[in-house]
């Protein structure tokens, strides 16, 4: 991990610690929690898309599997929350293997459509067979760790963002390791990657599993924080939102996942003041981002900074 990443991690940690102390507004803490949950999904999606060169339009499915499985296991089967989360990650990993199978054969648009189909299937399953069907279910147990039950907004803010920091450290290590280089190589040339002695099948399955684990961890956090779930939170719309986060933050840098998640989560709240024009403005801002910041916010900021230094 380079100096820039270590410095960024330190700043992030500092901001996380200070934020709830300086800002007392619970409403802002709540937005912060949702931004953190989204960031978990976006970091995984950045690795999958930006580094490994795959695509997923079904990431909300893993998010939903994480949420539903963990909620059902802790609510209906009385398992400890932490064990439920762990099992949810296992189930999600299995689903990721199923999704990775088409990815072994498909590329680009075809893979996008296949993952979209996968997302829809999971959405329909939650809709038809999930507890409470389309209207969902509540009373999901709160997060509980070593006998301590997380209740306040503050608790969840720190929990979620601590997960983001840990996942970020793990991801940065991974990206900078030989495994990360193999993933990038696969993006560059599959033929050359294979003839360099790398098993593409294994690598693709593993990176899909990784991104599904991040997404389902986020889903579980969501379930035990909100304590109410319905299928509408895990639709294609949410998969597209995750995709937006990654693209706007910058697909070629995992910090882009966090920045994108912050923007996509906070923007609608800021625009709320514009009443009926909010959707219009939201669309306009996103379009401007895509038009003028193709590479995404983080990579463009880094480029600008480098140019400024070399002046």
């Amino acid at each position: 991990m380079g100096k820039g990443n270590i410095l960024s991690l330190l700043i992030l940690t500092l901001v996380i610690i200070i934020f709830p102390i300086v800002i007392k507004d619970t409403y802002l803490h709540t937005i912060g929690i949702f931004a953190g949950i989204n960031a978990l999904v976006a970091i995984g999606l950045t690795i999958l898309m930006g580094y490994a060169g795959q695509i997923s339009l079904g990431q909300a499915a893993f998010y939903g599997i994480g949420a539903y499985i963990s909620a059902i296991l802790s609510l209906h089967f009385g398992l400890p929350v932490i064990l439920s989360i762990f099992l949810a990650l296992l189930v999600s990993s299995t689903a990721a293997i199923i999704l990775a199978i088409p990815a072994l054969r498909l590329k680009g648009h075809y893979l996008a459509v296949a993952t979209l189909g996968f997302g829809e299937i999971i959405h329909i399953i939650l809709h038809e067979w999930g507890p409470g069907g389309p209207s969902g279910f509540g009373d999901i147990p709160k997060m509980n760790l070593f006998g301590y039950t997380f209740t306040s907004t503050n608790d969840y803010f720190y929990l979620v963002w601590m997960c983001v920091v840990v996942i970020m450290i793990f991801s940065l290590n991974l990206i900078n390791s030989m495994t990360g280089k193999a993933l990038q190589a696969m993006h560059g040339s599959e033929i050359a990657t294979q003839t360099a002695g790398i098993n593409l099948t294994k690598l693709k399955i593993k990176v899909f599993i990784l991104s599904s684990i991040y997404a389902s961890l986020a889903g579980a956090m969501y379930a035990h924080y909100v304590t109410f779930l319905s299928p509408s939170s895990f639709s294609l719309f949410h998969s597209v939102l995750f995709l937006m986060m990654v693209v706007i933050g910058g697909i070629s840098n995992i910090w882009g996942g966090i920045v994108g998640a912050l923007i996509i989560t906070i923007l609608p709240e800021v625009l709320r003041g514009f009443k009926e024009f909010d959707i219009l403005l939201y669309g306009l801002i996103l379009t401007l981002f895509l038009l003028f910041m193709r590479k995404g916010l983080v990579p463009m900021t880094i480029d600008t900074y480098k140019r400024w230094i070399h002046r």
């Binding site: 991974l174 030989m178 280089k181 560059g188 033929i191 002695g197 593993k206």
Partner: peptide
């Protein structure tokens, strides 16, 4: 030519060595 264009020259060679030093995720 099938190089990893977006990676550095050094990284291209490093990938060639992955098979001898594979470390899991």
């Amino acid at each position: 030519l099938e190089l990893f264009g977006e990676m550095t020259v050094l990284e291209n060679v490093m990938v060639g060595m992955y098979l001898k030093y594979e470390t899991g995720f």
